[in-house]
């Protein structure tokens, strides 16, 4: 078996909306596939089909070589799902939620309790274990949700935007969890709106928009297309914006852009450029309130791939 899961030409329509217009996704066992796309791209729809919750209108999908429609029952034994919207029971405590799932996965009650305690400890929820989930913070719910999808030690795990709305520290926790799952041999499908997240975790990335894959490759190959990194400078004194832009132009050899007021950015190829920018800004005595080296945003990725901004960015701009 070459792929842990595979979708070929998936089509899904809701009335006149085409959520998926023939999408291909696949991951080899023990790897992470990042599915990157803006709101409404079809990420959740694709995940729901692969998780046997939705029937496709066209195309096919398999998990472990088994068709998700014809062998749904057997596929369900292999998968774990953390949906985009919390799928824990708010009235049940953390422990009760996990024990219930253990029992539904045919663990004996005693075993289910052990497994629940294990997972609660692993996700730093032991203290909150006896409280109803509705008293949990957003981050705690997300972690409980992730724990719930791991009770049965699934081979294939779907994580639908697992870090949206989390602060950076909590996000790092989830990232580490994903890494350790993969180290244990699981295959992960992770949807996200952040190139940074896909870059940090994925072995391969599929960029989707309007229900189609518009780019696919390793993070490195994708970054080669969309430009590696971006340097952003916000001078303390707005009058020196032009000077800062001059520095960026000189170092990178590209014409800097000003995406918002008081800020200039320019794509660069390596982090050597960053050191050089810092040096020159210092030499010219340009104080800064913000100076960063970052990966392109989703909007910038889309702009590079399609020559268009994402719809959301257009709405914001309009």
């Amino acid at each position: 078996m070459e792929h842990a899961f595979e979708a070929e030409g998936l089509v899904k329509r809701y009335g006149k909306t085409t959520a998926l217009a023939g999408i291909d996704l696949a991951a080899r066992p023990g790897t992470v596939l990042g599915v990157l796309g803006p709101n409404g791209a079809g990420k959740t729809t694709a995940v729901r089909i692969l998780a046997t919750l939705l029937r496709p209108d066209g195309g096919r999908a398999t998990v472990g070589g088994l068709d998700v429609v014809r062998h749904a029952a057997r596929v369900r034994r292999m998968i774990g799902l953390t949906g985009q919207y919390a799928s824990v029971d708010e009235d049940l405590t953390g422990t009760q939620n996990l024990v219930l799932i253990g029992q539904l996965l045919n663990l004996r009650t005693a075993e289910a309790k052990v497994r629940a305690a294990e997972l609660l400890a692993e996700f730093d929820l032991t203290e909150a274990a006896g409280r109803p989930a509705k008293t949990y913070s957003g981050g705690m719910r997300r972690r409980l949700d992730l724990a719930a999808s791991l009770v049965g030690r699934p081979d294939v795990i779907y994580l639908d935007e697992p870090t949206t709305g989390l602060d950076p520290a909590k996000r790092d926790d989830i990232w580490n969890q994903v890494r350790s799952l993969v180290a244990d041999g699981a295959t992960v499908l992770l949807t996200t709106q952040y190139l940074e997240e896909a870059d940090a975790l994925a072995d391969e990335i599929s960029v989707i928009d309007h229900g189609r894959v518009i780019a696919h490759g390793t993070p490195a190959s994708l970054k080669a297309v969309v430009g590696g990194q971006t340097i952003l400078v916000r001078p303390a004194d707005p009058a020196r914006l032009a000077d800062a832009a001059g520095v960026l132009a000189a170092v990178s050899g590209h014409q800097p852009e000003s995406p918002s007021r008081g800020v200039v950015t320019v794509p660069v190829d390596g982090d050597a450029a960053f050191t050089e920018v810092v040096k020159r800004l210092d030499l010219l005595g340009i104080g800064v309130t913000e100076l960063s080296l970052r990966l392109p945003s989703l909007d910038e990725v889309f702009f590079s791939l399609t020559g268009q901004h994402t719809e959301r960015a257009e709405e914001v701009a309009a």
Binding site: A51, T52, R74, G83, S87, V88, I101, L105
Partner: peptide, 10 residues
């Protein structure tokens, strides 16, 4: 969402 979870279980 909790019913989605039940549906995704064997």
């Amino acid at each position: 969402g909790v019913f989605d979870r039940f549906r995704s279980l064997p």
